[in-house]
Amino acid sequence: MSFWEKGYLATGLAVLVAGSGYFAIVWKQSLALGSLAPPNWILFSAYLVVLMALSGVSFLLLGRAEARSDDGPEVGDFDERDRLIRMKSLSATSHVLSLGVYVPLVWFLFHQSGDLLFHSLIGGLVLAEATMCFLHVFNYNRAY
């Protein structure tokens, strides 16, 4: 498994952990309120910070681990195959992201709740980002 493959796997898991944490808090707040909790800056910012911290730490730890292995000199290198995989994964992710935006927008036409639209768009982003990471891992293991 290459440095990037491990990094994307770790980041994909981090995205799912941070996303689950975010929605668990929204769920709890909504139960306490008796209706859907409105978004707040603190929770949204905390989600972004936790997400960036988890993915940053995973790449940092992997970089350190790799530096001690035989693959040391290759850590962080990005060659033609990495670029091809990145391009293919991001291109497919853009379709998932489009779907993750279309569905909440169409749904909004029926419920007209800005809060629900906000949370469902975050859901779409989480889904797209996790898909992007796991598509990288998948593409690293398939043939071209």
């Binding site: 290459s2 060659d79 195959r81 990495d82 398939r142 071209y144």
Partner: peptide, 16 residues
């Protein structure tokens, strides 16, 4: 390139 790319080429999983 990276070592992983050489491995992929040798396994016939990637055309350079």
């Amino acid at each position: 390139v990276t070592r992983q790319t050489v491995i992929a080429i040798e396994r016939g999983k990637y055309s350079p």
